[in-house]
């Protein structure tokens, strides 16, 4: 049981890291538009198959 003395702080630390990452993402506006990225992820697939990439 005494492993909790180490495990719990580590768990909370990891949670803090995740929260900080999320907060930074939110402050940079990554959640301002949730609609376009959802469709954008599909494009590369279509792009690669339907029209071969000839330019960079």
């Amino acid at each position: 049981m005494s492993v909790l003395f180490i495990a719990l702080p580590i768990a909370l630390l990891l949670a803090t890291v995740a929260v900080v990452a999320f907060v930074r993402a939110a402050r940079r506006g990554q959640f301002d538009d949730l609609q376009t990225p959802a469709v954008r992820i599909l494009f590369d697939d279509v792009d690669a198959t339907a029209t071969p990439r000839d330019e960079t």
């Binding site: 929260v19 999320f22 939110a26 402050r27 506006g29």
Partner: peptide, 25 residues
């Protein structure tokens, strides 16, 4: 409004993380 929304989202994230972890404890 944009910064307000980001602020709300930030608060929600912190509150959500705290709530989830506290429920576990």
């Amino acid at each position: 409004e944009q910064s307000e929304e980001r602020e709300l989202l930030t608060r929600l994230a912190v509150a959500g993380a705290a709530a989830g972890n506290n429920m576990l404890i």
